[in-house]
Design a protein around this nucleic acid. Sequence first.
DNA 1: TGTCCATCCCTTGCGCTTCTAGGCATCTTC
DNA 2: GAAGATGCCTAGAAGCGCAAGGGATGGACA
Lengths: 115, 115
Amino acid sequence: MAAVKSDLPQGTLDLLILKAVAVEPVHGYAIAQRLEQVSRGVVQVPEGSLYPALHRLENRGFLAADWKKTETGREAKFYRLTRKGRKQLETEAASWQRLIEAIGLILGMADGGAQ
Amino acid sequence: MAAVKSDLPQGTLDLLILKAVAVEPVHGYAIAQRLEQVSRGVVQVPEGSLYPALHRLENRGFLAADWKKTETGREAKFYRLTRKGRKQLETEAASWQRLIEAIGLILGMADGGAQ
DNA sequence: TGTCCATCCCTTGCGCTTCTAGGCATCTTC
DNA sequence: GAAGATGCCTAGAAGCGCAAGGGATGGACA
């Protein structure tokens, strides 16, 4: 509801995908749905962003994929985290944490108008 | 210290610049220094990112500039926030808040390995 | 049977931002 | 007068997200 449509900053999509896959192996289509649900509609991942990102992460060795059947009886490409991918997730999550703290400090600066 | 060198996600630089200028009119060179100081070295803005961003924000009407003398007696281009820019700052700050909350929800999902 | 919708995969091309790597000028300090 | 800090700028490359396309399958419904 109230789909605010916030474009993702460059680089954050990888983090979100890695996290989604870390919870349990899933296929691409489900990743997008899950991210949207968990974020309450704030994060929306169009397929034109999703699949290139998945291939990117696979090429870099962070993800690996197998074709399996979904619950609905369809063939789908299930991604899972490699050891390297899990490490990358930790690194990126830490970077993200550091970043939002830093930006928090900046946004917390006393404003000229208010206080 | 411990300059971690974290590249900024696309779009966040504008927010940081708008905020820095909102505190008080400053020139470009000082913006970079201020952001780095306040963020304790986490946010580092190379000049090749800074000046194009400033021109971008000026072209969009969010910033206005005047040449003045600095404390050190030099001519420098002081940027200040326009009314439109202040509104933009509020919008972007709110978006940022919404985004980090959403990503927080996602990163808080129970992991497959730990929890 | 035929049609529609949801599920599931993919690619091309554009637009945007960031960074690297330069250049230029002034002022102070040694 | 050489060096470093201050202060501005640009061009080019690289990367990423998105819109807009395409295709295939299965179930529901008329």
